[in-house]
Amino acid sequence: MAEKEVLLKVDNITKRFGGIVAVDHVSCTVRKGEVVSIIGPNGAGKTTVFNMLTGVYEVDEGEIIFNGNPIHNKDPKEIVAAGISRTFQNIRLFSDLRVIENVLIGAHIKTKYNFFQSVFRTKKFREEEDKKTAEAIQLLKSIGLDYRRDDYASNLPYGEQRKLEITRAIATGAQLILLDEPAAGMNPQESAELMEFINKLKDQGYTILMIEHDMSVVMNVSDRIYVIDHGKPIAEGLPEEIANNPKVIEAYLGGVQNDAEDQ
């Protein structure tokens, strides 16, 4: 099988907060159309990696290459425009706005009319607004949220709020979607639907980098997995390799395994 083109190349990025090294020389490569997961115990530095990828934090060392261009330390909005979009671990929706408005805000940079065209309600404005609205509804339908279209985001149950965040991220037109614990707070049926949706995105050419604690989701959808612990990369490989990697088991089970050995 021919190797697919590299979309994202993270090379030895490091982030320090005062004394602590939250991310310590982490590297990873994501190819077009792959679903790659980052796992690791709490506080391992996973979200910090996402924050560097999206320009929320500057990198202290290392570089991030997306589509052949360096994007580290760029402005977040330039990074979105380049094609990386994300969801947040602690949901950050525009909660007093409607579901469809959230998705339309996701489509902000792709909504191509200027201020004066909107004030005078020109043909260009109406066409563009109609097009983006229809796309938003199509997107909501395919993720199974359309029946909530007119609701306010804050009224959705937790699982649906997560779905809406993913929808909003896709609406930006980004080709690389970063999901920070998408299955957190979902019931088994919802996470099954999520897996189905992730596979559907993959089929349609999206590339996904995901942080997730739910191992059934990780093992089911990932092409490859990176494991970090205390900011350091400790393993990478195919799902089955990771599942049987002693270092990973130790990082996750830590003292528990030692206790078992002691007995």
């Binding site: 909005k77 408005e101 805000i105 902000h108 909107s118």
Partner: peptide
């Protein structure tokens, strides 16, 4: 009722999330 108004309201609701949507 345009992308401008939506951007205003997005900023009011959550600035970080708005930046992540590419809003200046």
């Amino acid at each position: 009722k345009s992308k401008t108004g939506r951007a205003f309201q997005a900023i009011r609701a959550d600035e970080l999330a708005s930046t992540m949507m590419g809003i200046n």
